[in-house]
């Protein structure tokens, strides 16, 4: 992912702002997680008690200010996983909540909301001989009429149970961060990473886990479009020109015959069957 330039500043208390945020995110538990403000002609992305990120109007520069006592590793983590995809969206780039792996020289993406298992699936592939391109924040570009998936940061974040089940103890890991118990593993000989762009071949939408076995089914184009809507990073949905451009782009993407739903019981012992089913599905159908 070709991200914005980061300018890391000294820690400072988060000053109270006079205006209300125009948008905010909550954690799955309902706690405030991120607040979005318009400041001057740019944006302020605030993670309460953690850090402020000022994103320039063109999305190319980010000034980061940690809250007092917050480690640089936490700021770096927030920058890579939250501020960067949002800044890229301001550059007009299409960035999805999706992981992706490389199969037969092409990119195979797994889209889905938080908790659906995107990173776990990518980690499962990456620790079994198939390189990953990103564990979230899938950046797509149109090159010569084809959609290409760009590699992201060479690290993968997993919860403790996934770590125990999938990742060798000897794998390199990034320093822990304050706001999550997820561990970030760095790519290496045990977690394989693809650092080159790859043409997009499939997007699998991860189902709820209700399936009793590994199932793959085609997704209607309109359903695929709504999936892309729900899983896009967008810094400012109030900016109509950008919203319209984004809608056009994802409509074209939704019309391609590459969208499927992948569902499976969320048990680690079944992941080998999931990998086999995906590889078979990708390689046996050339469409």
């Amino acid at each position: 992912m070709i991200g914005p330039v980061l300018h890391l500043h000294d820690a400072q208390p988060q000053a109270k702002l006079s205006q209300l945020p125009f948008h905010h995110w909550h954690s799955p538990a309902g706690h405030p997680w991120a607040e979005f403000y318009r400041v001057g002609d740019g944006y302020l992305l605030r993670f309460p008690q953690l850090a402020d990120f000022e994103i320039s109007a063109d999305g190319k520069e980010v000034d980061a200010r940690p809250a007092p006592g917050v480690q640089d590793s936490t700021v770096e983590h927030l920058f890579l996983n939250q501020a960067t995809p949002l800044a890229l969206s301001k550059q007009g780039k299409l960035v999805l909540h999706a992981s992706a792996v490389e199969i037969e020289g092409t990119a195979v993406a797994f889209i889905g909301r938080s908790g659906r298992g995107k990173s776990t699936l990518a980690a499962s592939f990456a620790t079994h001989g198939i390189r990953f391109l990103t564990d979230d924040g899938l950046h797509l570009e149109r090159v010569d009429g084809k959609i290409v998936c760009l590699p992201s940061h060479p690290s993968i974040r997993v919860w403790e149970d996934s770590k125990q089940a999938l990742v060798p103890d000897t794998s390199m890991r990034a320093p822990p961060v304050e706001y999550t118990t997820k561990t970030r593993f760095l790519a290496g000989p045990e977690i394989l990473f693809c650092n080159e762009p790859r043409p997009l071949r499939r997007i699998y939408s991860l189902g709820s886990g209700a399936a009793g076995e590994v199932t793959i089914s085609r997704v209607r184009p309109a359903a695929a479009l709504m999936d892309l809507v729900r899983n896009s990073f967008l810094l400012d949905i109030g900016e109509q020109e950008m919203l319209a451009r984004h809608f056009d782009e994802i409509s074209r993407l939704a019309a391609l015959p590459i969208h499927f739903e992948l569902d499976y019981p969320r048990r680690y012992e079944i992941l080998s069957r999931v990998r086999e089913a995906v590889v078979r599905h990708v390689t046996e159908d050339p469409s």
């Binding site: 309109a222 709504m226 319209a244 809608f247 056009d248």
Partner: peptide, 24 residues
């Protein structure tokens, strides 16, 4: 006037630009 519509397959998705809301 502030609605975009895109036909995908035999269905249509509408985007209301003012609210950012989508409708199938």
């Amino acid at each position: 006037p502030d609605v975009m519509a895109r036909q995908v397959g035999d269905e249509t998705v509408l985007l209301h630009l003012a609210s950012g809301g989508y409708f199938g």
